[in-house]
């Protein structure tokens, strides 16, 4: 079983990202569950969401403490929250950032991948300058580093369940998959 934690801000689509990823896993004939950090949410406030993917049905309902992957939708969060909390020693980090991984100040980690999801989202008209919706780009990039969720499944999931312009979201995911850096 793999466990993933997403960090975003209210309104960026972190919760939808976890849902779309879970759908992608199910479309790849796996079992999955997705849930937000349970609490009052608000636009702009930091949001955490989670996803579990497994070959067998998922029965556990406890929270996720030691994720295998951490996905950060907003680079500013890296200085506000300890995004590395609980990340397994051989776990991987994916950050929405225009910088190469070695330039990220607060992040000292082995496996770090970066993708400029904000620019990609804006290029495909997802969200606005002030509030880009980076979630589909981010999960496109995520499928590059996670074998359980191949790109075709992510695209299928977006075309089925993504809010907004499904075609544009799918293109964003594809471009992010192709441009994600720092992959090991």
């Amino acid at each position: 079983m793999i466990e993933i934690r997403f960090h975003g801000r209210g309104g960026q689509g972190a919760v939808v990202a976890s849902e779309l990823l879970a759908r992608a896993a199910v479309m790849n004939r796996l079992h999955a569950a997705a849930f937000p950090f349970f609490g009052v949410e608000r636009r702009g406030a930091p949001v955490t969401a989670f996803c579990r993917i497994d070959l067998k049905p998922i029965r556990t309902h406890s929270e996720i403490y030691f994720p295998d992957y951490v996905v950060v939708l907003d680079p500013d969060l890296v200085s506000m929250t300890n995004v590395l909390q609980g990340l397994k020693p051989d776990g991987a980090l994916l950050i929405n950032s225009a910088k190469e991984s070695c330039d990220l100040q607060h992040v000292k980690w082995g496996k770090v991948a970066t993708v400029d999801a904000t620019s990609i989202a804006l290029k495909y008209g997802l969200g606005s300058e002030n509030a880009p919706i980076v979630n589909t780009a981010i999960i496109g990039a995520f499928s590059k580093i996670c074998p359980q969720v191949p790109l075709e499944s992510v695209i299928e999931s977006i075309m089925k369940a993504s809010p907004g312009d499904k075609r544009a979201n799918a293109e964003a995911a594809k471009e992010a998959f192709e441009t994600v850096k720092g992959v090991w």
């Binding site: 976890s18 849902e19 999955a32 569950a33 849930f35 349970f38 309902h61």
Partner: peptide
Amino acid sequence: EDGFILSHTFEK
């Protein structure tokens, strides 16, 4: 159904 744990969790 348990609040949040089931009500807000996506499952198959």
